[in-house]
Amino acid sequence: MHPITTTFVDRLRNRDESAWFELWETFGPVIRAHFARWGRGAIGPETARDLTQETLAQLAGAIERFDPERGVRFSTWLLSIARHIFGDEVDRRMAGKRGGGRRAFSLDAGPPASSDGVAPDDEYERRIFRAKVMAAIRRVESTSDFLGFQVWQTRVLDGVVGREVAERIGTSEPTVSRHVARIRDRLRGELARTISEYSFTEEESREAERAGLAASDSAFDAAIAEIYRVEAGAPSVSPDGASDSKAWSSIRFPPRGAR
């Protein structure tokens, strides 16, 4: 296991709130989207968000028990907690209706398959991987100079040709290429670091390779652009709209060591 992984789990175990926020920021949208999908329209964005909070709160209580050496993916572990939370929510809802007390949703059967025929777990894992890539891009964005990153974003993510990018920002095409190459190199490094940080198995670590991110520059750019196109498209949930300190800060972590 990569040492950074240990550090991240340690940070979570030590109740480092910024580590938990990182987790929430990176994987929260994935979990929310899954709750919304499992609910098949029966649960609204507010409930999805509440359930996501509950998932992370449960995760906080169980983090002490997590053993990365057992070879279980962190994402799989997260999903299993989310499933239990979702099952509890279904039970709660059914208890108040006719036929209450009976289990209306089998957790063993798992959530229904998606329309494209891909098993939900595969789709979930793909989402988790895309979330890691987006986290890496965010990190590069926060550590790069604004102009360089914008050039890369316009050229690679928005797919604008180099000459046009150069015209827009009032520079030459070679300068654009230099900016793009520099950001690409940084992203490669950050991607490796981020995937290691959130991955606990060899299989997870090889995901980048499978997604074409270890290939040549042009293939790497195309793969990143595709992930961005899928992930940063239309929002999957509605905004809260309320002035609040909800979401992250309303999660109540159990005391350290609680079982």
Partner: peptide, 26 residues
Amino acid sequence: AHGALSRFERPSPESLRWIVRRAMAD
């Protein structure tokens, strides 16, 4: 939904997109 990385789906002037990204940058 994705902060500074949010994608522009509708046609809009490049200069305004730039302003959005500059304001939402790190």
